[in-house]
Nucleic acid binder design. Structure first.
Lengths: 249, 249
DNA sequence: AAAACACTTTGAGTTAGATCAATTACTCCC
DNA sequence: GGGAGTAATTGATCTAACTCAAAGTGTTTT
């Protein structure tokens, strides 16, 4: 409930805080290099891009950008976790995505016209992101056709995954939406059981799935009571995904 | 209800019917040239691509491809209208998109890996589509960097629009989902009123918006009774979109 | 260690929307 | 133009999920 009216009221001013620490730790660089949008870049180009980027540190619940703000940068998550959400006219906060370290977001803005962020982005805990100028990446893409191929593959994958998200949301009842969501979180899908970590606090998963936190809680309690999931804070253990699918008919 | 169990039961065999008529009518060609994925192609390349493509005629309710089928082609709609949908384990049919003449679909498959269709596609009425080999388009993209830029812009736009679709679906009540859907159909959005043609039969709009046909019908009847829309078959007239937004709070 | 805060769970009452059933209206054929 | 098939509407229940309220749990702050 506190969360349902977060952004506009809570955070007003200091949107961005750059840190001077350069982006050169081996782990972070390695993660960047293994992202499809950057893996094709040669050493020199990658170096150049990083030089033009800034490393941003975000505190718990800090806002990175606002919906409709002009979008001159896109982002790579170094550490922490963020969420994307929109605010409608009545101020209701609707979570659309969560972003983990190693992911990019707002990268779609590289070619959006006009370049405005389509949603809010805030840190769910203290996080660090690399803020990459759209222009710099764009120039690079144009300089080497191979780069564009990689970007296309990335965009295609993203489009498929959004399509899939949409599919879940056309499921009419809350229980089945939650079940499908959980199965998608499993490393091997419905193939085999496993442990799942909710990428968002429960009340935000609820928002993502268009249900109330109370409903989420009750459904999960019910699945637990029926031995379908074991719950430990935000970690869920699903032993038999097939059974879950069956009960969702 | 008949529609809720369409594809698997109704259409079993003849998925594709090519027609010999070449794709050279001025209107169709003009439409193709004005699509972002093709507008940058020079005359020779476009000609070459068309030669490798086939023109397909689809009857009312005819299936073009199935979910999970290997995807070697993508499509451009010459005439008619199609819809994309998925079928879940219990055979429920969930409409995800509708495609009008001048649009492309399954174009995301150009770079998908593995290349499998993510949904079913069927004609809503008798239609003609151009079936373009993924490989041919891919080769062309690689041959000219300018082409890739155009494709990237297209993909970016597509991703933003899917994101927006997802947002609508996180709206929790059926009435507000329908209102937002209608406003998105308006040529100028909430700016000014206008006439809207439903891109799908009402029962499929309902499916797209995760509600029952009965609910759709009742909500529309209610909006009509309150003078918010005028309804004439599948054409709706919305005089004051702002008022619609207000009542959706 | 207590207080403040943020999130989750549980309970009780209410309602939006699903379901079931029947009627009406179109559309396409013959 | 009549009949079959499909889609849309309307009515009457019933239930899933929302709302409001309160208590419980965990985390951070001082």
């Amino acid at each position: 409930m506190a969360l349902t009216q977060t952004a506009e009221t809570r955070y007003t001013k200091p949107v961005l805080v750059a840190v001077n620490k350069p982006f050169d730790d081996e782990d972070g660089l390695q993660a960047l290099r293994s992202h499809p949008l950057f893996s094709e870049l040669n050493g020199k180009d990658l170096q150049h891009l990083i030089q033009q980027s800034r490393r941003i540190r975000l505190g718990h619940h800090q806002l990175l950008y606002r919906q409709d703000m002009p979008a001159h940068h896109f982002f790579f998550v170094i550490s922490g976790r963020l969420r994307l959400y929109r605010l409608d006219s009545s101020g209701i906060d609707r979570t659309l995505d969560s972003i983990a370290p190693g992911d990019c977001f707002a990268e779609v803005m590289i070619y959006a016209d006009p370049p405005r962020y389509a949603c809010y982005a805030e840190a769910l805990k203290s996080s660090e992101v690399l803020m990459i100028p759209v222009k710099a990446y764009q120039d690079m893409l144009e300089s080497n056709p191979k780069y564009a191929q990689a970007a296309l593959r990335h965009y295609a994958k993203r489009a498929v995954s959004r399509f899939h998200d949409l599919e879940i949301m056309t499921v009419q009842n809350a229980r089945d939406r939650l079940i499908r969501y959980l199965i998608d979180l499993l490393p091997n899908g419905a193939e085999e059981g496993g442990e799942v970590e909710l990428p968002l606090p429960k009340c935000l998963v609820a928002s993502r799935l268009a249900m109330q936190p109370e409903t989420f809680s009750r459904i999960l309690a019910d699945l637990k009571a029926n031995g379908l999931v074991r719950v430990n804070r935000s970690r869920l253990f699903i032993s038999d995904p097939q059974r879950l699918i069956e009960i969702s008919q």
